[in-house]
Design a protein around this nucleic acid. Structure first.
Length: 150
DNA sequence: GCCAACGTTGGC
DNA sequence: GCCAACGTTGGC
């Protein structure tokens, strides 16, 4: 079992939205490194920190889990989707995703500011300069350190 | 294969 | 709304 962090803008899709729908296909990732983590790294049952980005209080808002193996993101084939990719084909899909299932909402959001204060989290990918990845790996030690703040 | 221009992310 | 970081695109 591995651990991950996945970013979502709460105005678009929040932890409460995930709680409502229970399981959500993680559509729209169009970054190769993030895709590779989903395609090659993730397995069913892996832990996911659900992170709210681009909002008033950025931070970890809940816990989810990987609920499927990777499969082609259907939005890449949909001409009407904002995620449509004309260079992708069904024979050779360019973009993959996993399903993400709700586990629980944290009692409170663990803020980015708090995470930055933790010396135990030095080296955490989320906190590295210029990081913009929307899907990134978390070690067991980092996972435990973050959730200990709840 | 280089690199300038451009677009996007995301914190502040 | 600003801006730093950085990935992608396309001309050469």
């Amino acid at each position: 079992m591995r651990y991950w962090l996945m970013k979502s803008e709460p105005d678009v899709f929040s932890i409460d939205d995930l709680a409502r729908v229970r399981t959500e296909p993680w559509t729209g990732v169009r970054n190769y490194q993030a895709r590779n983590f989903m395609r090659d790294g993730m397995g069913k049952g892996d832990g996911v920190l659900f992170y709210h980005s681009s909002c008033e209080v950025p931070g970890v808002a809940g816990i989810a889990e990987v609920a499927s193996a990777a499969y082609p993101d259907p939005t890449q084939f949909d001409r009407k989707s904002e995620y449509y990719d004309e260079k992708s084909t069904r024979e050779e899909p360019r973009w993959m995703l996993v399903d993400v299932a709700f586990k629980r909402k944290l009692k409170r959001t663990i803020t980015l500011a708090e995470l930055k204060d933790q010396t135990r989290l030095d080296g955490f990918a989320l906190l590295q300069r210029g990081n913009r990845l929307s899907v990134l790996p978390v070690t067991k030690a980092q996972w435990d350190a973050i959730l200990a703040l709840e």
